[in-house]
Amino acid sequence: MHVVVCVKQVWDPEFPSVSFKIDEEVGEVIPVPGLSQVVSPYDEQAVEAALRLRDAGAKLKITILCYGPSSAEHTIRGVLALGADEGILVADEAAEWSDGASTATILAAAIRKIGNCDLVLTGRQAADTDAGVVGCGLAAILDLPAITLAKEIQISDRKIRIVRVLADHHETVEAPLPALVTVTHELGKSRYASLKETMRARRKPMACWTVTELGLAGSATPAARVVRKKLFIPRRDQSCEFISGATTQDLAAKLAQRLYQEGLF
């Protein structure tokens, strides 16, 4: 069985917001010292979901597919070190300006080129755009059943069974393969790469394709429909009234009194 996990390289979302800077003139993130590129955490959990299927006994080939700049090869190697089998990078220095439609079009073309794929996994959304468009978009283009927000996946007999996380319920659904599944963080922690796997990952196959090779127009964003006009950090002008006190007791009493005065309870 062949599983393709689509991953995106993003600016580390765990980077502290006080140091996160944007060049509002050009509408880009400023690569300040310490800010690194990582695999989007939800996508990492999609990889984890594939590895858990293998742990549960499924015979799987796991391919990591990424549309990104050539620097993303390093990120893919990191994912291979978790236990995936091979990497494919659709390299495009302009990938950063792609929108969901364009990215899904390119990834769908790559999945067709890979061929005979039984299961496509993605994270629920990328940690930079927070859009969540590519997963269902891929399903629409490839005409696959789409199951979103998976926390548990089981495969048996050409069928897939998923537990989804909805607002008020956990929903168990079944679909025939091939299918597309997006994975949510309720899946739980991803594994770490062992030193042995990291060494092995260096020798794992890595293909580098171009957008043109996929039969699409060579430009960065052949299908982009959404254009970013402005990127900015919203100003927080709330002035905070700090309450202090000589003792904990005094402080607690002052805070309670102040909130009471304001009619907050």
Partner: peptide
């Protein structure tokens, strides 16, 4: 976007 660190205006 960017995990709530930033906002964007799109068209």
């Amino acid at each position: 976007c960017y995990g709530g660190k930033a906002q964007e205006v799109v068209t």
